[in-house]
Amino acid sequence: MNTKELFSPELICLNLEVKNKSDLFRKIADDLNKKGYVNAGYLKGISQREEEFPTGLITQHLNIALPHSDTQYIEKAFIYIVRLNEPITFNQMGDNQEIKVKDIFFLGIKDSAKQVNLLASLMDLFSNDEFVNNFVEVSNKTEMLSLVNKNL
């Protein structure tokens, strides 16, 4: 599956207000469940996995997080782009240190063999100065979708 097909205007939210990580996970899990992308176990799946194996990352220009669950909770593969109004605390992958994150990509991976390039392509984007400059400026869904489609 092409990474581009995983994005959708209904899965972009650029001004989300949340209290903390569990509030964020609950809101996104609800929305994904209503739209048919995940099953009822997803919220628990994603929360436990993040607890055990955190996904925050300090990239060159931007702190991001890539929460994902085991494949059994995913009905239809997706990437959900979320930008928070205020940063919240995540832990960094690898060393568990606390970092502040505003930009989050929920990865709905259904078949890891087919989607193995997904992470590599996403990470390439975040080491690309021009992409990151545009990414932080984008303020609506249509622009965001065309930006990721243009760069992937």
Binding site: L107, I109, S112, V116, A120
Partner: peptide, 15 residues
């Protein structure tokens, strides 16, 4: 080695 073998370890092993 990564948490679930979903994507991270494979990506890094490839790199």
């Amino acid at each position: 080695a990564c948490g679930s073998g979903v994507a991270t370890s494979t990506t890094i092993a490839e790199k």
